[in-house]
Computed example of a mutant assay.
Amino acid sequence: MTSKRFLSRRGFIAAGAATAGAALAGSLLPHAHAAGTAVKPLVFAHRGASALRPEHTLAAYAKAIADGADFVEPDLVSTKDGVLVARHEAFLSETTDVTRRPEFAGRRVRRTIDGETHEGWFVDDFTLAELKTLRAIERIPQSRPGSAKYDGMFQVLTFEEVIDFVAAQSATIGRVIGLVPELKHSTYFARAGLPLEERFIATLAAHEYTRRAPVEIQSFEVANLRMLREKLGKRSNLRLMQLVGVGPVKPADVAADGGALTYAEMATPAGLRTIAQYADVFSPPTRALIPLKKNGMLDAPTSIAADARAAGLRLETWTFRPENRFIAADFRDGGGEHARNEAGSIAEMRRYLELGLDGFFTDDPGLGVKAVAGL
């Protein structure tokens, strides 16, 4: 399943401080991190502050907002009873305590989703009530022991709970926080009789916050973004983001339909012009913009940044992580591969920001804010 996993300027944050109980400002104006400064690249909190708290939890979102993220990301999947919940993927075994829950032992299955096979537990085999009995855990505790200390403390969230929490935080701190939801495995869920898109559209429409606040909708698939553009049209608070992986891999919907289009073809000038017909943002992995040499150091940039701008697309890349194992060799320090390297992560982000990024995903938005502040 293609993911913003471990492959490794213009804003539209609504103006006006929302006070508790007050309606959000109706107009959308450029966002700057400080009064009088130029517009800065947007900092997207990848699954919340997922380097510091278990991903997609209230703790992760709260930490991201406190650390200055412009947007928080809820990845969306569906429960058995059709409720959208915030999990990075359908597979539950790595991010919840389901493996330690004997009452669900009989639901262990082997399943292939978007070309990847896993054996374990899957979200669409659980009702929301059952899912709520599980607790979130850290995905990579060997690299993030500080986050792992929060294991077992937080529930799985519904999309509506995420919206309500972000709206409340926005009203409390007087700063509008955007949402950057990703529709995960759309083709898989549609074939399981649990299509995501109509429920997603209905949820956006049902909440005052998502009718006004900035929302960027992402997907690695193509057909769902085309459908969303047709259904939602062009709205001042909405953007559509086409995510891509690397190389000859096909989007899941293209592969399922027997199509030939690959992510590599989508990243060509012709492919980018096609994307611009239905999306607003092109979002490749960082190493597609500046690849790594065999020695792990950064190579020369590719033409993708310039090509995306020429096609009229915003460029927002994924994902920066603060541990040495994920950082280019240019910026690693003397710690081990799992060691946290804040200075190196900031330096790496600034190198990529030189390409003129409009935004970027990071597991540690506090470091992202520091990187942007240096521009």
Rank of each mutant, 00 (worst) to 15 (best):
M1K: 13
S3A: 15
R5C: 07
F6T: 14
I13V: 13
A17E: 14
A18R: 15
A18Y: 02
A20V: 15
A22K: 07
A22L: 04
S27C: 07
L29Q: 14
A35D: 10
V43H: 07
V43R: 05
H46Y: 14
A49P: 07
L58D: 03
A60V: 11
Y61P: 01
A66L: 04
A66Y: 00
G68P: 04
V72F: 10
P74Q: 10
D75S: 14
L76G: 06
S78V: 10
L84R: 02
A90G: 15
S93Q: 01
G106M: 07
R110K: 15
R110P: 10
T112M: 12
E116W: 04
T117S: 15
T117H: 09
H118K: 13
H118M: 08
W121L: 06
V123S: 09
D124E: 14
D125I: 03
L131T: 10
L131H: 08
Q142E: 11
R144A: 09
A148T: 10
M153F: 10
V176W: 00
L179F: 02
L183C: 03
H185P: 13
H185L: 09
F189I: 01
E198C: 00
F200K: 05
T203L: 15
L204I: 01
R212P: 01
P214G: 02
E216L: 08
E216Y: 07
E216P: 00
I217T: 02
S219M: 01
S219D: 03
R226I: 13
L228H: 03
R229Y: 12
L232C: 10
G233D: 03
K234V: 15
R239I: 02
M241Q: 08
V249C: 07
K250E: 06
A252F: 05
V254A: 08
A255T: 04
D257H: 11
G258D: 11
G259L: 05
A260F: 02
G271E: 04
G271Q: 02
R273H: 07
T274W: 04
D280V: 05
D280E: 06
F282P: 06
S283T: 06
P285C: 05
P285D: 04
T286Y: 07
P291S: 10
L292G: 05
K294M: 08
K294N: 14
L298Y: 06
S303R: 11
A308H: 07
G312W: 12
P322L: 01
A328Y: 12
F331N: 12
G334M: 09
A339Y: 05
S345W: 00
S345Y: 02
I346Q: 00
A347N: 03
E348I: 08
R351S: 10
D364L: 00
G368H: 01
G368E: 00
V372E: 00
A373H: 02
